[in-house]
């Protein structure tokens, strides 16, 4: 009984592992552009965060303006780099 069960398990394993896959799934490698898209999304998330916290009254106007312009500059730099890569 034990040996029969062991044999069934072995055969099932071999069949599953080596059964040909009709469409082996593959993805293209992640590019620098993909990475920049992620970075841009992260900076946008930070901007959303800042806007919300400002609306919630956590930051005075002067601090908010400074922080927002830093984030916007960062976003602009990333978008510039993305445009350069897309043109190339």
């Amino acid at each position: 009984m034990g040996l029969v069960a062991a044999a069934v398990l072995t055969l099932a394993s071999l069949a599953y592992i080596f059964w040909p896959a009709e469409n082996p799934f593959s993805q293209r490698a992640k590019s620098q552009l993909d990475y920049l898209r992620e970075r841009k999304e992260a900076v946008y998330e930070n901007l959303r965060d800042l806007n919300f916290e400002y609306k919630a009254g956590k930051y005075p106007e002067e601090d908010y303006v400074t922080q927002r312009s830093l984030l916007e500059n960062e976003a602009a730099e990333i978008m510039g780099e993305m445009e350069r890569l897309e043109r190339a």
Partner: peptide, 16 residues
Amino acid sequence: TSRVSHTEAVAVGSGD
């Protein structure tokens, strides 16, 4: 909308 770009939109959500 935010002034980062005219074509992009930034949600005024609840931050993260």
